Simulated assay, not measured.
Amino acid sequence: MPFDRQVLAARTRLLADALAVEAPGTSTEVRIPPFAVVRCIEDPRHTRGTPPNVVESDPLTWVRLATGRAQWAAAVENAQVKASGERADLVEVLPIPG
């Protein structure tokens, strides 16, 4: 069954915003194209340009990770998530409490 694009976009944005609230900071950029980009995780302080830590995922994988329906390690291993940088491991902040 196909997913409703508007529902997927809303859930993606809501969960990305929740991550930014739960793990505030600017050292890691989480990208879920085409729906959301947030910065999170404290220290080291980053203020300009692309952060040294970047996580990218498709929206459906993101929703599954954020809600605990998928595991971080498996998503990275299966190339569903691209993570680069020392602070790009979100295992400590996922799933998002809710």
Results as ranks from 00 to 15, higher is better:
M1A: 14
M1H: 14
M1F: 15
A9V: 10
A9S: 11
T12W: 02
R13Y: 15
R13I: 15
R13A: 15
R13H: 11
L14Y: 08
L14F: 07
L15V: 06
A16V: 08
A16K: 02
D17G: 13
L19K: 04
A20L: 05
A20K: 06
V21Q: 14
E22K: 09
A23L: 07
A23N: 03
P24K: 12
P24W: 12
G25K: 11
T26I: 07
T26Y: 10
S27Y: 00
S27V: 08
T28V: 09
T28G: 06
E29R: 13
V30C: 00
R31A: 14
I32W: 09
I32L: 10
I32V: 15
P33V: 14
F35Y: 15
A36E: 13
V37D: 02
V38C: 09
V38G: 01
R39Y: 13
R39N: 10
C40D: 13
C40Y: 13
C40E: 14
I41E: 05
E42T: 15
E42L: 14
D43I: 10
P44Y: 06
R45S: 12
H46T: 12
R48Y: 13
R48W: 13
G49M: 10
T50F: 05
P51A: 04
P51F: 08
P51Q: 03
N53W: 08
N53G: 08
N53A: 12
E56M: 14
E56C: 15
E56G: 12
S57M: 09
S57P: 08
D58Q: 07
D58L: 06
L60A: 15
L60T: 14
W62G: 06
W62Q: 05
R64K: 15
L65D: 02
L65E: 01
A66C: 07
A66N: 04
T67C: 04
T67D: 03
R69V: 04
A70P: 00
W72G: 07
W72S: 05
A73K: 05
A73W: 01
A74H: 10
A74V: 15
A74P: 01
A75S: 07
A75L: 02
V76Q: 01
V76L: 01
E77L: 08
E77D: 11
N78I: 06
Q80L: 14
Q80I: 05
Q80C: 11
V81N: 00
V81M: 00
K82E: 11
A83H: 03
E86P: 04
E86A: 10
R87N: 10
V91W: 12
V91E: 10
E92Q: 13
E92L: 15
E92S: 15
E92R: 13
V93E: 06
V93H: 08
L94P: 00
P95S: 09
I96H: 02
